[in-house]
């Protein structure tokens, strides 16, 4: 089995290798062509080393995300350099912070606006499960209820080192993907036919409702 390699960090030092190995097994269950395999490696190398994240932050974790980009932690070293403000150009959305009921449709829409391949990293307790605000009436308990999450980074907020580690885990996950063959891109039933979101800025006057009142 081919193991994803991260520069200067041994494979064994990463946690949760079992999940990754199970994934590799599942993805490689079909045989692949040598040429296609080599092409896959090239593509994965490109994708995993050039993760441009969307500038998306709702609360405290966003500040740690900013320090990650600043002088001391400098995630540009890994090729995550460019944070894009337009979701169309981003490869990765870091859900840094609490997602509330009001924000949930916005986050879903941002995710839908991103171009494939796209990855989601849930940063901090709030994004993973609601964190300290789990019992609140207005907080979504985990972003994985609305969008698929690739990597969870626990912490409240996680240290920048933890976020870097999470990003490396994501790189490992990307490195075992297969672009050709389609095993890992097969959409599940019902995934493709979501109801469209209707958005309007036009004033809506519900005359019927008003006249009743």
């Amino acid at each position: 089995m081919k193991k994803p390699n991260i520069k200067s960090i041994p494979y064994e030092e990463f946690k949760d290798n079992e999940t990754l190995e199970a994934l590799i097994k599942e993805i490689n269950s079909e045989r692949t062509n040598v040429v296609v395999g080599a092409l896959d490696d090239l593509i994965n190398w490109g994708r995993s080393n050039s993760m441009w994240s969307l500038t998306f932050a709702t609360s405290c974790c966003g500040i740690e995300f900013m320090s990650l980009g600043a002088a001391r932690y400098d995630f540009a070293r890994f090729g995550f350099e460019v944070t894009r403000n337009s979701p169309r150009q981003a490869d990765l959305i870091m859900v840094a912070g609490t997602i509330t009921h009001k924000m949930a449709p916005v986050l879903k829409r941002l995710y839908d606006q991103m171009a494939d391949p796209k990855y989601v990293v849930a940063v901090g307790g709030c994004a993973i499960s609601g964190g300290p605000f789990k019992s609140s009436y207005h907080v979504l308990n985990g972003v994985d209820k609305i969008i698929p999450v690739d990597v969870y980074i626990p912490g409240c907020p996680p240290r920048p080192e933890a976020i870097l580690y999470g990003m490396m885990q994501l790189q490992r996950k990307v490195k075992i993907e297969k672009f050709f063959g389609g095993k890992n891109h097969r959409a599940k039933k019902g995934e493709m036919n979501n109801d469209p979101i209707i958005v309007t800025n036009a004033p809506i006057i519900d005359n019927e409702k008003l006249s009743k009142e």
Binding site: N49, S50, E81
Partner: peptide, 22 residues
Amino acid sequence: CRLGPTRVGFWGLLQVFADVFK
């Protein structure tokens, strides 16, 4: 006061190629 790309290739030289492939 940062380093810029360092990990993709020697001194980060292959960084831009990775971006292009992606």
